[in-house]
Simulated scan of single mutants.
Amino acid sequence: MNSKRIGFIGLGLIGGSIARAIRRCFPSSEILAYDTDRDSLSLAMADGIIDYACTKIDEHYGTCDYIFLCTPVSYNSGYLSSLKEILRPGCILTDVGSVKTDIHLKIIELGLEANFIGGHPMAGSEKTGFSNSTAHLVENAYYVLTPSAKVPDEAVQRMREMVAAIGAIPIILGYQEHDYITASVSHLPHIIAASLVNLIKVSDSEDGLMKTIAAGGFKDITRIASSSPVMWQQICLTNGENISRILGDYIDYLGAIRQALDSGNQSELYDLFYTAREYRNSIPNASLGPIKKVFAVYCDIIDEAGGIATIATILASNNISIKNIGIIHNREFEEGVLRIEFYEEDPSLKAVELLRKYRYTVYER
């Protein structure tokens, strides 16, 4: 990609990370941005990530070769209406939302199909805002592109090349197919996790015994229940039809499992766990899907004063940052006494090598 002018509307975690990646890969490009948070724009200017901070959506965006719409879904319609008046032919308009049907329907309504290629970078963080953005956030992550029916093939190819250049893995899908897939592998799991946590909450005794012993495996499989309530409310409202469809299939499947339990059907119960184990083990062990991977290792330590401190010191002295560390008290389904979580994959791999060098028994997931 030659030197281009690239506009951002919204410069939070995702928008800021993509802007940083573009600045790193295409340093001669001009980047302009609009955000209601003036501090984010000031920080982006100070960091040299953007060249222009816009106070509104105006004619500056009419000169862009690419425009990334990186705002909450509920704000998209207003910005699209503003862009319709100034968007130039040949400009690629894209977004980063995790639900695609709503925005595609709005694009069709406004007559912007010749410009629009929907986008969904399958990466994120529990942190928010431009201050937490990184140039490598989307590296090695799937980046789904959902081209409109009237967008030229040449524009789709340019967008693929842009995505690949910043280190992501482009995948082309229809917007309806995208929403059904994400409903199945991302949206439904979040609903299951949230409902399971709430089930335990209302089933717990007054002394909170379930909560006390629910660490370990339970906390791992329900980790995504800690996600933003507002974001998941909006996802459910915008992709409700697909989620309801797959949720219905899941409820039917749960009913079949309950029937197998009630009838004591040995073969069906065995097949439930055997097929799940085989299919899960066939899934590539990489942080490429819509649910962010946790980089954690587990190791055995002797119960003695300073045991955790020793490991923390070993890692810190080798410039390995720890996100979280703690003893696992409920180890019914876990190997390892100590769980250590890292921010990224490379530090976790280095930690495994280092701890084994010091003769710790380390278990990887």
Rank of each mutant, 00 (worst) to 15 (best):
L209T: 12
L32V: 09
S203H: 03
D303A: 10
S321G: 05
S17R: 06
D35T: 08
I191V: 15
Y34H: 08
K106I: 11
A33L: 07
A214M: 08
E332N: 13
C299Q: 04
M159Y: 02
L110E: 03
G336H: 05
Q234A: 13
A123P: 13
R38D: 12
G240L: 05
L355Q: 03
I172A: 02
E113S: 15
V197S: 07
K127E: 14
E364A: 07
G326H: 05
I311Y: 02
G10W: 00
Y66T: 07
I320R: 02
S205H: 05
I108D: 10
S321A: 14
G62F: 10
N281K: 09
L349W: 10
I235C: 06
L355W: 06
L349E: 11
L338S: 04
D252V: 07
N318I: 02
R339E: 12
Q157Y: 08
H178G: 02
I169G: 04
G97A: 15
H178Q: 01
I251K: 14
N285H: 09
S263W: 07
H136D: 15
T55A: 13
L87D: 03
R356F: 03
V297M: 14
H329F: 12
D271A: 15
L272F: 13
K357D: 11
T36I: 15
C70T: 13
K292C: 09
G48F: 06
P290L: 04
K84Y: 02
V96N: 09
C54N: 05
K350M: 08
S3A: 14
G174Q: 06
L315I: 10
I14E: 11
L80K: 01
I50T: 05
S203G: 07
D47F: 11
S227Y: 01
G12N: 13
D153C: 03
S195M: 14
R20K: 15
S3P: 00
N319V: 00
L288D: 11
V352A: 09
Y34I: 10
Y66Q: 01
V197T: 07
P290G: 12
E268Y: 10
A260D: 05
K106E: 15
G12C: 08
V197N: 03
A164M: 10
N2L: 10
N132C: 02
V297C: 12
I235R: 11
I340S: 04
F116H: 04
I257N: 04
S205Y: 00
I322A: 04
K357E: 12
I311N: 01
N242F: 13
L80I: 02
V230R: 12
A193S: 14
E154A: 12
K211S: 12
L261W: 08
V144S: 01
N285T: 00
P189S: 08
C25M: 12
L315E: 01
Y175D: 00
D37G: 09
G306T: 02
D249F: 10
R280Y: 00
G248E: 10
I340L: 10
I213C: 12
P147G: 01
Y270D: 06
Y363A: 06
A21F: 05
N115V: 00
P189K: 07
T361W: 03
N319G: 00
D300P: 09
D179C: 09
A351V: 02
L110D: 00
G10L: 01
I108Y: 00
V294K: 11
